[in-house]
Simulated scan of single mutants.
Amino acid sequence: MKKTVAILSSVFLLAACQDTTDATQESVVNEESGQTQVSTVESVESEAVSSEVQEDVAYEYEINPDLYTVVPIDDADTEVVLLTFDDAPQPPNSYTLDIAQTVQDKGANAIFFVMGQFLEEPEAKEIIKTVYDMGFEIGNHSYSHPDLTTLTYEEQLAEITKTSDLVEEITGERPRFIRAPYGSYNSETEAIADGENMTIMNWTYGYDWVDGYMEEDAIADIMINAPELGSGGNLLMHDRQWTSAAISRIIDGLRDAGYEMVDPTLIASPEEA
């Protein structure tokens, strides 16, 4: 199956988000006195340390830098797939909250990759803050969705850091993952991602922008029956009405096929380095 993913992922890497143009990839925590007080302080400190330890995440997966699949680090479950949604929250009629609510209701998880220019509006900021507070990972999808390989280093840096700044302003946390528009990036993008402690994440397959699949039944069917589906699949979808309508069926179908949705918090990134 990995051979299939390797061959076919290249077809889909450069086709996504084709609302504009195609591009090629260059291969990113009872006060009392005396002894009782001392005991209370020690207890509080102990609880604080315990809470801190509980918040630390033991990463179980990493992203294959060549295939963009989710790979177990040790003996984690191999039969997983990752749900990702780009272009969130896309105006004027965003389905990001609907998608997030359905995914949460199904007991699954996902990454929402946001475009910075959408986060300039108060409503969009509220949407992303809500999605983040629901427990979803927020990823960086650039500011204005350009082909990064056509930009200078300084222009790429601005596209990426401006979006990370906005996400941090809204959520208090900078993105750990970046998805280059069109899947197109170069060594300068990689250098910026390294400097920003982010992992570059493209995808293995996606269809909801392709003619013939921009409809509920069609996208539900292909996402669970795609020839590219396999262990560690990185599934690309978007803030679209038909995707929102189909996502419950997609999750059910993936589970019926033997796959569970991986929790993005378990995927390694270099932010702790």
Rank of each mutant, 00 (worst) to 15 (best):
I170P: 08
I127K: 07
K162T: 14
I224Y: 01
A100Y: 05
P227R: 11
T149C: 12
M134D: 03
L148M: 15
E190W: 07
Y153D: 04
A180M: 10
Y143V: 06
L119K: 05
D105W: 05
E196D: 04
E190A: 12
Y205K: 02
T161F: 00
I219F: 04
E173D: 11
L166S: 10
E123C: 01
E216A: 14
Y132K: 11
D194Y: 01
V131H: 07
Q104N: 09
I222M: 11
S187F: 01
I192R: 02
I200M: 06
Y207W: 15
R174F: 01
R176P: 01
V103P: 10
P181I: 11
E137L: 02
A191R: 11
E120I: 13
D221C: 06
T150D: 15
E155C: 05
A100P: 04
V210L: 15
E121C: 00
A226C: 10
L229H: 09
Q101V: 00
E168R: 04
M198S: 07
K106G: 07
A100Q: 12
E121H: 12
L151N: 06
T161M: 10
E188D: 15
K106M: 14
T130N: 08
A158V: 11
G230P: 00
R174E: 13
I160M: 14
G172Y: 01
Y143C: 02
Y143M: 08
Q156S: 11
V114R: 00
I224H: 01
M115C: 11
N225L: 09
I127M: 12
I200K: 10
Q104L: 13
N202S: 13
S144W: 01
M214W: 00
P122G: 08
Y213C: 02
A226K: 07
I170N: 03
N109D: 14
L151W: 09
A158D: 15
T161V: 09
M201V: 14
D165V: 03
E173A: 13
F136M: 07
N186K: 08
E159N: 06
P181T: 07
G139Y: 06
G183H: 05
S142F: 07
D165N: 10
N186C: 08
N140K: 02
I99K: 04
I192Y: 04
D105S: 15
E168N: 11
L166E: 07
D165W: 03
V114D: 03
G139L: 03
V103G: 05
V131P: 08
A191K: 14
M115P: 03
Q117D: 14
E173F: 04
M201H: 00
G212L: 04
I224W: 03
E159I: 09
M214Y: 00
D208F: 08
M214I: 10
I138H: 06
F118L: 02
E120L: 13
S144Y: 00
G183R: 10
A218R: 10
F136S: 05
Y143R: 10
G206N: 08
E154F: 02
T199I: 15
D217G: 15
F113A: 03
H141F: 03
V114C: 14
